[in-house]
Write a protein that binds this DNA or RNA. Structure first.
Lengths: 340, 340
DNA sequence: CTGTTAGCGCGTTCAC
DNA sequence: GTGAACGCGCTAACAG
């Protein structure tokens, strides 16, 4: 494939010399410009092939003023979001046309500033900021020379553009599904109440219940995002009120705990008890028994959309404002309806 | 922070003009060179601050011949490995000194070539290739102008440098731990037999058993890397032979399934039955009941080591050869020994 | 159609 | 101490 010559990568001049043309002509030939004779182009292409020429994107970026790179600045500690988002962005940009610097700030503001400076110094064409919770985060600021999109964690500055999943709607979807399955005594076990996600999912659920003229069968329980919490809370609720026929869980982890507790108590899921999770975290949802019905966020779509907005901004030099709430999807598996 | 001027990023010349010095002097002042008067330096620094100067790493990379970037070429579909590896690499390089292009080839050789060309075109100083299984993979080739390190998935070409976890040793560690816990009727439920990881973990285990003058209490069962398989296989084995007192699992997912099956059969873990997993995949291992003892791969360390080798190669222009098997660690939790 | 010139932003001589 | 000049690799603008 691409070889080196004399320990130094082949340059456009090497190609030009070998094809006995000027560097400018070689450049045109290689870039598919029309104003070059067919014979000349063939000679140049051959020469390029022979010396294993790989155009220097660094030099190109210097003249062009754009580098065709973007920065992905993340604080997503376990990497559940950022990889799909990256893949979506790669897709939208068109594989290989744009490359992505991935920087992990690890939730540290100082490290984030550090990475930000580095990205600007590298003259990225745009920046995608990914956070690990949906609570608004501090803006990177308005004075940046490149467009920025905030993903998952929205910016607290409404003049920035943010994409964040519609957790409220997710709560509604979950409840509507449970109601459609004929459940009437529904409870909620949610995650850490300090998270906007926990509050939003709950409030969407309450709204949907109210719209149906009903309410939760017990006070919603918020705790932490863990299986342990799901187990403990479910044990409590189910023993206290055996009539409960559905649990809406704030996350798939919690749902796994609930399923565990239900089995211990001899409750048959989904016949006696329906369970629905949140996140569509495949490793958890696909492997539970039965498989877990859940509400999912399409992170690849999130990445694609973010990339499209950036791409748009590259030309216009402008980017929209505000928080866009992106759709979430109900993924029906076996914990709400007997399947397979 | 970094502002723009006239819609264009401030350049060294802008700083120089404002400080009434030449660009050369400004450069020296900003780069901490000694041959510049203290007063001049102060003036330059002030000017740089005022115009929000951010040095153009692209231009710098062009002259320097090195870009202080590396490419991370991955096929790790669920991103379990690549993020920690990236973090480790960032650490080793020193945050912000080197930035990382993350490219996801998605297991597609064509896409990989595409990304490779792009990375070379961007003149990365080195490349880290991450695969999602420990089976040897095709080499990127010897003719590359930059050093390459293969991580997790080793290169099939022994002249390349590869870092891959020592799965055989992991199997030994698991068995030695079970033996130390006084277990004598041990069985194995492993993952997909087409994976080297499945075979290596098994053979390490068999070796350790043989060294202790014993063997598995039943024919090892290899299947797939899923909880479902773990449950099914465990149910089969435990019903067939109630004397079994320990299960070495090929992965944490499998172990979760085994724990599930054990509870269904009324077996008390760890008293009646010890269970040990593999991977130390926290979301699974920390949330099982009891928490899962497992053998873990330190991916951050893998990333650090890879980065150190690359860093070393940047100067020397040479990189070692061969497959380095990196240490794995036993992480004892509650499924082998009563804890907390 | 092709070649010459110039410049992107920076760092590095080497005179002064 | 400081600045003028040059080059990194490439492309846009012009001249031939």
């Amino acid at each position: 494939m691409s070889t080196e010559r004399n320990g130094r990568a082949a340059t456009l001049n090497d190609v030009a010399q070998r094809a006995r043309v000027s560097a400018a002509t070689a450049s045109k030939a290689l870039n598919g410009r029309t104003d070059v004779a067919a014979a000349t182009r063939a000679r140049v292409l051959a020469a390029a092939e022979e010396v294993g020429f790989t155009p220097n994107a660094v030099a190109r970026g210097l003249t062009a003023g754009r580098t065709s790179t973007v920065g992905l600045l993340t604080s997503d500690l376990d990497g559940r979001f950022v990889l799909p988002i990256l893949m979506g962005a790669e897709d939208a940009f068109g594989a290989g046309r744009i490359d992505v610097f991935l920087c992990d700030a690890r939730g540290d503001a100082v490290r984030e500033q550090h990475h930000l400076r580095a990205l600007l110094s590298r003259r990225v064409d745009g920046i995608i900021v990914v956070g690990d919770r949906t609570d608004p985060r501090r803006s990177l600021g308005r004075a940046l020379p490149v467009p920025v999109v905030y993903v998952y964690a929205p910016s607290s500055d409404p003049r920035d553009l943010s994409l964040t999943p519609d957790n409220v709607e997710g709560g509604r979807l979950a409840i509507r599904h449970l109601l459609a399955c004929g459940r009437s005594r529904i409870v909620h076990i949610g995650g850490d109440p300090s998270y906007a996600a926990a509050q939003d999912r709950l409030s969407g659920a309450q709204e949907a219940l109210a719209a149906a003229g009903t309410a939760f069968a017990a006070e919603p329980m918020l705790g932490e995002w863990s299986e342990h919490w799901g187990r403990a809370a479910a044990a409590l609720l189910l023993e206290r009120d055996p009539e409960i026929d559905a649990v809406f869980c704030g996350s798939d982890q919690i749902a796994r705990g609930v399923l565990d507790a239900a089995r211990d108590l001899g409750r048959d899921v989904p016949r006696d008890l329906a369970v629905i999770g949140f996140d569509n975290w495949t490793v958890l949802a696909e492997n539970s028994r039965p498989r877990l019905t859940t509400v999912g966020v399409d992170f690849e779509a999130l990445g694609r959309t973010a990339a499209q907005h950036l791409f748009h901004a590259f030309d216009d030099n402008g980017i929209e404002s505000g928080v866009l709430h992106t759709p979430v999807q109900l993924v029906v598996r076996g914990t709400t309806i007997p399947v397979g």
